[in-house]
């Protein structure tokens, strides 16, 4: 089998295991939608200058969805597979290691794409959120860059997670506080400056802001948030470097 069809097979089986894992599907697919409904209920969805407030929640929820589908999902699944000996078994076969990882990345991308479509559709149908056609190119670019970078960061995280039980705790302990400082859950003008400085250091806020630009109806022309993308790519390269040097295929401590 050529590596291309191996990649496709691996990706489709990874999607299948994801779909059959109730915890993973709940946290990745259902929870972001629940948040979207909650936020718009709590903070309201009034129209200001012809734009619904939800226009500014949807990009945050989208960032949350993409990060769940990639970093969180990748870190937990890969740690579990490593500790269960799945990765070791795969290393005993002639499959190229990068094809195995690539299949997982493809599956994550597919989930992220589905979530993007879902969130945009729900936003449009239920909350009257408008996505201008001029925002679509940057949305697609953010989605691809975000998926690649946060997959790499998810793999990098596995290098410090020692066990299956620790995987959700580690991942959430890192992601949750960052969501709060990254304008994902709470969007306000008067964020203390040290909070916004911390947020600026990490890639989550930049993904949220890049996506916000795609949904911002006041931007003239086609938004291209180069600065935010650069930071996300930088973190992605860091994640890939950590993965390349420290990733292990055998259970922790063997």
């Amino acid at each position: 089998m050529s590596w291309l069809s191996q990649l496709r097979t691996q990706g489709s089986f990874d999607l299948l295991t994801f779909r059959r894992n109730p915890a993973a599907t709940f946290f990745t697919v259902v929870l972001p939608l629940i948040f979207l409904f909650l936020f718009t209920s709590i903070f309201g969805n009034e129209e200001i200058n012809g734009v619904r407030v939800a226009n500014f929640y949807v990009p945050g929820i989208l960032a949350l969805s993409i990060i769940s589908a990639t970093m969180v999902n990748m870190a937990i699944t890969t740690t579990t597979r490593r500790e269960q000996g799945v990765l070791k078994r795969v290393r005993g076969t002639p499959l190229r290691p990068w094809v195995f990882v690539g299949g997982q990345v493809l599956a994550s991308l597919a989930i992220a794409v589905v979530m993007t479509v879902l969130v945009v559709l729900v936003g449009w149908l239920v909350f009257d959120v408008q996505l201008q056609s001029s925002g679509v190119p940057s949305l697609i670019i953010s989605l691809i860059i975000g998926t690649a970078a946060f997959c790499a960061l998810g793999l990098a995280l596995t290098t410090i997670i020692p066990s299956v039980n620790a995987a959700p705790a580690f991942t959430n302990a890192i992601a949750l506080p960052l969501y709060f400082v990254s304008d994902i859950f709470i969007i306000t003008e008067d964020t203390p400056s040290f909070i916004s400085t911390i947020g600026n250091l990490f890639p989550i806020k930049h993904l949220g802001q890049a996506l916000t630009e795609s949904f911002n109806p006041f931007i003239e022309g086609t938004p291209m948030p180069w600065g935010h993308w650069a930071v996300i790519i930088g973190w992605g390269v860091f994640g890939a470097a950590v993965t390349a040097t420290r990733f292990r295929w055998t259970p922790w401590g063997t």
């Binding site: 269960q84 799945v86 070791k88 078994r89």
Partner: peptide, 9 residues
């Protein structure tokens, strides 16, 4: 292998 699982899903 002595200890390894297969994706339970």
């Amino acid at each position: 292998l002595q200890e390894s699982e297969v994706e339970p899903e």
